[in-house]
């Protein structure tokens, strides 16, 4: 369950959503695409292009204007050749040409089309998945943990492809658990905690812990190896298990009585970013 999620994705920008595994990041991606499992329920609004994104509209747009780049090779049909999967069953020359170009753009030759997913190497599979998004001209690209298991260099190359797509005008939603990785490429970063966005800030703010607003974000910053590798004590509650008060209350060093009792803590603008905290951290010089 995700609740109180708000997020803006702008064209030409990469917005990263950073959160621990199990914090509901993939559900976010699936709800935008309208492909949540049948046993889930969604409330709230998603606006796309200023208009409400209804399930009907999502169905029309997905695969065309909105594209998903999934995590790995298991998202390809194991028994279907790559080319056939990209073509989605259409056999006309135009589709074939578009797919060939999309693969070529990522350095994959026409012979890749004849391969089955199990014949792809990890890096190739990743490029095939990105290529699958650009067979059309997507305006919103949702990348859900697109770089697990890749070394830093390979991951940087993949992220470079996202930057390229953003520069062509697409909005990119980059979902990851890796704050450092997100910062290498994102323009905006939204931090996810127990199914809520608790802070949304420019990537620059993350250059210095003193510019961050939420206690969790600061703690997350400090947990990064380059910044001291100090772990956060305690564990994140599973999304949906906290019914009242601030979900971070259990782990927060600055928690006060009101934080535990508050019915709803809104996401509010604060010093140039957005933060969901009754007592946000003031900017400190540093």
């Amino acid at each position: 369950m995700i609740r109180d999620l708000s997020l803006k994705i702008r064209p030409g920008q990469i917005t990263a959503v950073v959160g621990a595994s199990g914090s509901g990041k993939s559900l976010l991606a699936h709800s935008i695409l309208g492909i949540l499992p049948y046993n889930s329920r969604m409330e709230g609004k998603i606006l796309y292009d200023g208009e409400l994104l209804t399930p009907k509209r999502a169905e029309r747009l997905r695969g065309k204007e909105i594209a998903l780049i999934p995590q790995g090779v298991t998202w390809l049909d194991p028994l279907m050749k790559v080319g056939a999967q990209l073509e989605k069953g259409r056999k006309d020359a135009g589709t074939k040409e578009k797919c060939r170009q999309a693969l070529e753009r990522y350095g994959l030759g026409a012979d890749t089309e004849e391969l089955y997913p199990f014949e792809l190497s990890g890096g190739m599979a990743r490029r095939v998945l990105i290529a699958s998004a650009v067979t059309e001209k997507p305006r919103l690209i949702i990348a859900d943990e697109p770089t697990p298991g890749l070394d830093a260099r390979a991951a940087a190359r993949i992220l470079g492809h996202f930057r390229e797509l953003a520069e062509e005008g697409a909005g990119v939603l980059f979902i990851t658990h890796d704050l450092e990785l997100a910062l290498t490429v994102a323009d905006r970063v939204a931090v996810f905690y127990a199914g809520e966005t608790i802070e949304e800030a420019d990537a620059e703010d993350f250059s210095d812990a003193g510019r961050l607003r939420h206690p969790f974000t600061r703690a997350l910053w400090n947990a990064v190896p380059a910044h001291g590798f100090r772990p956060i004590p305690g564990a994140q509650p599973y999304p949906g298990t906290v019914s009242e008060g601030c979900p971070f209350a259990g782990q927060c060093g600055k928690c006060r009585e009101e934080c535990r009792r508050a019915e709803e803590i809104p996401l509010e603008p604060f010093e140039g970013g957005m933060v969901r905290c009754l007592y946000p951290e003031r900017r400190t010089a540093g």
Binding site: H30, I35, R62, G63, D77, K88
Partner: peptide, 21 residues
């Protein structure tokens, strides 16, 4: 499976998903 979810995310119709995948 993930691949059916992905096919759906890419705008394949339910009919096509059933028959093709």
């Amino acid at each position: 499976s993930d691949y059916v979810l992905f096919a759906r995310a890419r705008g394949e119709s339910e009919r096509s998903i059933l028959l093709r995948h």
